[in-house]
Structure formats: structure tokens, C-alpha cells
Design a protein around this nucleic acid. Structure first.
Lengths: 218, 218
DNA sequence: ACCTGAACACCGTTCAAGT
DNA sequence: ACCTGAACACCGTTCAAGT
């Protein structure tokens, strides 16, 4: 995923893979690996440097500080999420309610499959996030997938009239809340199957409010 | 809030307020003060000790580790939240939909008024949380306020039939998502007034799914 | 242009020792 | 029973110095 420019700084020998060139991308990749591995918030710049065999000060040549690294990680997460949401919406372009249910479940599944990554995406403070416009733009792009589904649903007469932004916000909050609560095991649901069933039940309850009368039972 | 037993270990002179006795409560109170003050995750055991004029090892006589302190802080947060939810539900005992809307807004307002505290409440990892049964019980108690409103609404014919647990989960996820997204400014709403309007609009959308036909417009 | 090493001011946690 | 002081293994960040 996310194509990488391989034009210059050719990698000749395998003796020293990093140390010059490519360190920025290596840091990002290693950060994802650390997050994918596990439990704690053990993602530290020093550990990334250690894993990559560079000095602990080297990352500062590519990221202003730890927040900048986290912002890049979060941005990549939003890009990945956007791709998954679009893929989930693709199969039924004519059925907005089906698209809402499918993208909703995929949103929650993303949070459950990448819990640490999801935490980084939504764990940054407001002031910190404001310093990274690319990150905000990436987050907005994910939201717009949902928004466009709502708008198309309204044009097709499947979704109640009203400010699309509010309806999308309501739907987003619904699945975001499910994602957060399931991620922390605040809600009990073991495995993807139980989670998906719960999520779809909740989405259905919510959709009875979004759908025009009689269309809720599709 | 939260009465404190003042029976024994009387405080005579003001020369040394702590240093023996009461340190546990002082640590919790100071932790809340630090969280209320501001921005970062600057809540450290060493800083609490520094503020209270004790050595950095003293807290370990009262809390096994930092997680234990955070669990106690989170538990107090859930107790406070439960009290606020019950107060919000009290004025209209006969109108479950009104109770859902009011408790929903209060839930979000709590998150916005105590953002750091809210973060501690919901930021602990699942495995960590499992080690503190009192914390889980306090969280469950908050959820049960919502659950009981749903159940009473069903008995009164205001809320659709169905598993109350699922309906309460859906409603909880809705407001929890709004709380998280507004807290991080992922959603734009300046001030309590704009936030309350947004929250009530979303809750209304959701309620159209919860309410029996025709009762959604009250 | 990119990286290193030492340094500074922090952490959480432990443990012998004090009262 | 409760607290202290030194110690250990970590952090993020900076900065002169190296190549």
C-alpha cells in the first residue's frame, strides 16, 4: 500500500540498509510494526531508532518531534481507512442503506483489527492535531465517504431529508462509539462474528431513524 | 462530592498536612487537580509526589503502580458521571425519550467539561481494566442508568420492543461517539450551546429508530 | 545533507534504610 | 506502618561535532 518513490538513492548492497536515505520511510514502517505487535504505548522514538540501528537522535532529522511522527502515522491510518470504506461501499452503489451498514461495520472492524493504530489516529489532542493540516485533511476524506453515501441516499429517496452533514455526523458518531467501546472491551463481543452482529443490530436501530418510513426493513 | 471519612487521624496543626495519614486521598485529589488544569498527559506519580511534598517513592505505599492510581481516578469519574446521569433523568420520570435525550446530552457535556478525566476513564487498556473489578463495576453502574431508562420506556410503550441491552448499547455508542469526536475537536462545535444543539439533533435522529411510530416528534 | 555521542531534564519502579 | 534516598532502566529533546 502507499507507493514509495524508488527513483533516486538506489539501494545497492545489503550491508547497510538504512543509515543514509530512506530513514523517514523506515521509521514510519517500523512504527506500524510496533503498533501492530501489541499492547502498550511502547512506541518511542528511541525504540524505533534502536530497531533500525541508528542513533536515538537520527529520527529528528526527519520528524520535528514525536508528535510529527505520530501525525504521519495517523495520516496513513486515515488513508488506509478511507480505502477500506470505499471498497465497502463499492459493491452496492444503488443501495445507500446497505452502503451505510457495510461501511459502518468496516469502520468498526478497522478499529478492532488495528487497535493501536486507531488509537493514534484519534488519540491526538486537538491543539496537536491543528498543527498538521495534512492529517486533518486525511481524516476529513474518510468522513466524506460517509457523507457522500448519505447525499446519494437522499437523492435516491432512501434517506430522510435534512442537513447531510448532521446525518453523517450522527452515523459516524454511532460507529465511532461502537468502535471505541468494543476496542476497550467496555462492550462484550468476542471475535469478528459477534462484533459484526452487534454492530449491525445497532446500525439497524440507527437506520430506522435515517430511513424513510417503510424502507428500514430492507 | 464523594464524602470522605474524617473519623480518625485528626488533623491538628497545619505544619505538616500530609506525610502521615491521608496521603492516599491527597494523591487522588491532586490527580484530579492536575487533570483539571490542562493539556498534556503530564499526570505522573513523581509530579503528584512533588506537589504534595513527599518523596517520589511515597505513592507506592498506597498504590501498587501508576495503573492502580489511574484506575481509582477512573472509578471516581464513573461515580461522578452516574450521579450526573441520574440527576439528568430525575426531572421527567414518565418520559423515557426525554430522559434519553437529557442523559445523552449530560454524558457528552461531562466529557467536554472533564476531558482529561474522561480520557482516563476510557483510555485504559482492556487487560489493565480487568485487574480492577471495582472500576468495571462503576462503569457498569453508569451504563445501567441508561439501561433502566430504556426498560421503563419499553414498559410505558414509548420505546420499541427488543433486547434492552442492545438498545441501550446503541444509544450509549451514539453519545459516546459524539463525546469522543467533540472532545478531540474532530467535530466542530464551539461552546456548550452549539454542542448541545448538535448532540440533540443526533439523538433525535437516533430516537426516530428507538421510538414507536409517531412518538418521535415529541 | 545526514548521522553520532554526550548531555539534560524528565519518567516508573525497586529496595535498603530510616522513624 | 509509613516514608526517604539512592539507584536502575527507561523516556524526549538539544547540540556540538563528525562524515
Amino acid at each position: 500500500m502507499l507507493s514509495v518513490s524508488t527513483s533516486n538513492s538506489g539501494v545497492r548492497g545489503a550491508t547497510r540498509p538504512y543509515h543514509h536515505g530512506r530513514l523517514r520511510q523506515a521509521l514510519l514502517a517500523e512504527a506500524l510494526a510496533v503498533l501492530a505487535e501489541g499492547e502498550p504505548s511502547s512506541l518511542s522514538l528511541r525504540e524505533l531508532a534502536r530497531r533500525l540501528g541508528v542513533s536515538h537522535a537520527a529520527p529528528y532529522r526527519h520528524f520535528a518531534d514525536k508528535d510529527a511522527l505520530l501525525a504521519a502515522v495517523a495520516q496513513q491510518g486515515f488513508e488506509l481507512l478511507t480505502a477500506e470504506l470505499e471498497a465497502a461501499a463499492a459493491p452496492h452503489p444503488q443501495d445507500a442503506l446497505r452502503q451505510l451498514a457495510d461501511t459502518g461495520w468496516i469502520y468498526v472492524r478497522f478499529a478492532l483489527h488495528h487497535p493501536q493504530h486507531f488509537q493514534v489516529m484519534f488519540g491526538m489532542s486537538a491543539v496537536t492535531q491543528a498543527a498538521f493540516p495534512d492529517l486533518r485533511a486525511a481524516g476529513l476524506r474518510a468522513f466524506e465517504v460517509l457523507l457522500h453515501v448519505i447525499e446519494r441516499g437522499q437523492r435516491a429517496g432512501q434517506v430522510v431529508p435534512g442537513e447531510p452533514y448532521d446525518l453523517a455526523t450522527s452515523a459516524w458518531a454511532q460507529v465511532h462509539g461502537l468502535a471505541m467501546l468494543l476496542r476497550e472491551r467496555q462492550l462484550a463481543a468476542d471475535g469478528d462474528l459477534a462484533s459484526e452482529a452487534l454492530v449491525r443490530r445497532c446500525i439497524q436501530i440507527h437506520h430506522a431513524g435515517l430511513a424513510v418510513m417503510g424502507a428500514a426493513h430492507t
